[in-house]
Design a protein around this nucleic acid. Sequence first.
DNA 1: TCAAAAGTGTTCAAGTTACACCCATGT
DNA 2: ACATGGGTGTAACTTGAACACTTTTGA
Lengths: 244, 244
Amino acid sequence: MGIQNFHLTFMLPSINNTFYSGAGPILVAVDCIIFGFDKQRLKLLLFKRKVEPFKNEWSLIGRFVKSDESVYTAAERVLEESTGLSGVFMEQLACYGAEGRDPGGRVISIAHYALIRLEEQEEQAVETYQAHWYEVDKVPPLILDHNDMVADAFSKLRRRARYQPVGFELLPEKFTIPQLQTLYEAIYQKPLDRRNFRKKILSMKILEKLPEKDKSGSRKGAFLYRFDENKYQELMARGVDFEL
Amino acid sequence: MGIQNFHLTFMLPSINNTFYSGAGPILVAVDCIIFGFDKQRLKLLLFKRKVEPFKNEWSLIGRFVKSDESVYTAAERVLEESTGLSGVFMEQLACYGAEGRDPGGRVISIAHYALIRLEEQEEQAVETYQAHWYEVDKVPPLILDHNDMVADAFSKLRRRARYQPVGFELLPEKFTIPQLQTLYEAIYQKPLDRRNFRKKILSMKILEKLPEKDKSGSRKGAFLYRFDENKYQELMARGVDFEL
DNA sequence: TCAAAAGTGTTCAAGTTACACCCATGT
DNA sequence: ACATGGGTGTAACTTGAACACTTTTGA
């Protein structure tokens, strides 16, 4: 994250061995790469900074970690404060700790990525506070090393999708197989064969077919499915080969 | 890492918005999970703490990050200070940032794992300064959350071995195919078929056969091989399916 | 001559890829 | 009636898994 003008005084009294010399002052921040899928495209939530420096530039959302909260809690807080969402899937990506990464001061950032289900109303809602959902392949230049974070998060998502199902986190409860395929095509950034995709995903037996159709995508309509949560969790834990 | 008795005074003058409230004081440390392979077994370098608290208990090696060095540099420094080695493969594992993880204070640690070639003399050398090479499946209880770090590092190494070759980092320049197989068996913790292993690894064409034999492992002796660095780098970059 | 590890090929099963036609529906 | 996307099966190929015997050499 970027820093405003700030000054620190950092004192370490009673330092009596080399163990602590030079420790701090380093500020610890979290930044969130928020992925969303709107049944069509994989998107990323970006924010227009309201404060200097970098005012009006695009960036990820972040905050400083408080000394009485865990890093993970801080990331949850960021997510909640910026989107109102809680309880969503989130995982640590990496720590960005280069010395000169933030010209405003010595700040390291623990980047986290989150996967959320994107409903139409939410997609509009965020616009009101200087945020925008960008398609993953149309991300504008961001401040600091945020473009690196985005690239790393996307590549981690791609790798993760190979050995653990990710659909549950990004899709609404009920979805069609073509929608699921569109999601994977967005993640892998390549077209997949309809018949093979269906065969593979059904062979995992994590989908429950519902007696309803979603007709928003075609005249004929596509059957809705739901994840079988137990089997899904089992696959998540075990780790599956989901090479496509 | 663990902390001795310490007190901090942390002042943030001219805080004029919520952006900085509660920021710090958090100390940033790095800990290193150091893997070594001695042609037989995969080992982990552990240290007996010389200072309170946790004096004489086993732990990973770590240090605080200085404010004028990058996190990665700090990890390199730790490695160099504790083993004398530099230029070895090292990669960030994760940030451990739970609030109460270190009873001595608010410290987060960016864990890194390193892979090094283990020569016999080194294996002895470290003993002199309260360190010991433990086999990966015989790691003793460690301080703080260090056992978690070890488990996570080992699991990351296993996953990494599936899509990027790791042998180059852990083996001496010249090695035999049975040695390489032993390494993979140690990583995956399961026996592999000799014929299939040889077939697969040779089909990648990253090995160069030398006209020498290593007779240390058998009467007959096994041919020595060397990695073709160019092709190896190419595979590292591209990422290969090295499922075994 | 024998013990111990190195080296080598083939068969079978499973999984992945490629590919084309009919179906249901709203307009 | 037609345009649009949904749904299905099969054949060729590739890949991974299983498996046993011969070779070399030092003691």
